[in-house]
Amino acid sequence: MLAGRPDGPPRLEDFALEEGPIPEPGAGEVLMRTLWLSLDPYLRGRMGSSASHSSSTAPVPLGGVMEGGTVSQVVSSNDGGLASGDLVVSAAGWQEYAVAPAASLRRIDARGLPASTALGVLGMPGLTAYAGLHVIGRPAAGETVVVAAATGTVGSLVGQLARIAGARAVGIAGGQRKSAWLRECAIFDAVVDHRSPDFVERLADATPDGIDVYFENVGGHVWQAVWPRLNRHARVPVCGIASAYNASVADVSGDVAGLMSGLVTRSITLQGFVFRDHEQLRPQFEADVGRWVNEGRIAYHEDVVEGLANAPAAFLGMLAGEHVGKRLVRVAHEATARPRRASRGSRSQPPSGHHSGSSRGRPA
């Protein structure tokens, strides 16, 4: 449960555990058991008190179940479209069991891949990458595409999709471990460590012909280094500003006039978006990316934490950038038995060492 609204970075104390009876589904509803819980940066905004990562939707109420996407298994159904045992994508949140209208659920077609991919490379982050790059970025063969937070599910897919389109992919990441994964598994053309003291110079060396598409996930000093290198007619899809997620006051004190002047004089397109803007692309996205993963043309990584009780610490670690790829919580394995009681929410305690990871697609 959400126990507090963070002032700045979230804390373990902002979460609490509650237990209660398993709900009963009504007409047209299904009872689901959560198997996989998705941890995503946007959830910081859903906790409230984040002026720079706000949403048109009200934040999770205090004492309410923390929001989050899930892969769930249908336990019982009062709707003819879904049956016990079906796997679905839902917004069940941080809880073991949930009831939802069957019409609000999407049955999983993982195209031969693990069901967990419906929350990552074939889920919301994947569609974000696919739509942002192809609709706004529109890379052409021979152009240079730069992506920040490049080892996340969105960033890593952006770079690999850019290479499939014939463009040159440059990833910006933090630390040797992340940079190595981009070079060896995702096969980016160049990788730049934003923690390096000579980051600006290294970015210039990696983009000798400038930048045609910059996929923005970070902001801050990364944006400051990228901005001067954007070519005329560059396209900048913006899906997140991780450097400002914990800000409690929106800062508009920068050189906005200078930014807009640069957009005009260099004819640059700067466009924010969310994946829901492009839901109509889902069938083509799932077909393309599913095929390319199975063919080994796209690699992905899942960073798995075991147990719902470890979700808060895993979430805080994700916000701090300690993971590679998609961070998931395995809440349960597929099962049909229904216990008498279930836990809801998460304990405020650090992970107990049950982290695991796997890279799929192109071998490491």
Rank of each mutant, 00 (worst) to 15 (best):
residue 2 L to G: 05
residue 5 R to P: 04
residue 7 D to L: 13
residue 10 P to H: 05
residue 13 E to M: 02
residue 16 A to Y: 01
residue 17 L to K: 06
residue 22 I to W: 07
residue 35 L to E: 08
residue 35 L to A: 04
residue 41 P to K: 03
residue 55 S to N: 14
residue 57 T to A: 15
residue 64 G to D: 12
residue 67 E to I: 12
residue 69 G to I: 03
residue 70 T to I: 12
residue 71 V to N: 01
residue 75 V to N: 01
residue 78 N to R: 15
residue 78 N to T: 01
residue 80 G to E: 13
residue 88 V to Y: 09
residue 105 L to D: 05
residue 116 S to L: 04
residue 136 I to Q: 05
residue 141 A to M: 07
residue 141 A to Y: 05
residue 142 G to E: 11
residue 147 V to N: 03
residue 151 T to C: 03
residue 155 G to Q: 07
residue 162 A to H: 07
residue 171 G to K: 03
residue 179 S to A: 14
residue 183 R to Y: 04
residue 185 C to T: 15
residue 190 A to K: 04
residue 196 S to H: 13
residue 200 V to L: 01
residue 210 G to L: 11
residue 213 V to R: 08
residue 218 V to T: 13
residue 220 G to L: 07
residue 221 H to I: 09
residue 221 H to N: 10
residue 222 V to L: 09
residue 222 V to T: 11
residue 236 V to P: 06
residue 236 V to L: 08
residue 237 P to T: 02
residue 240 G to N: 02
residue 246 N to I: 00
residue 253 S to M: 06
residue 256 V to A: 14
residue 256 V to E: 01
residue 268 I to S: 10
residue 275 F to P: 00
residue 279 E to S: 11
residue 281 L to I: 04
residue 287 A to Y: 08
residue 293 V to H: 07
residue 293 V to K: 03
residue 295 E to A: 15
residue 297 R to N: 11
residue 300 Y to K: 01
residue 302 E to A: 08
residue 316 L to R: 09
residue 317 G to V: 09
residue 318 M to K: 05
residue 320 A to Q: 14
residue 336 T to H: 15
residue 343 S to K: 12
residue 345 G to R: 07
residue 345 G to M: 08
residue 346 S to C: 13
residue 352 S to W: 01
residue 354 H to W: 04
residue 356 S to W: 00
residue 364 A to G: 14
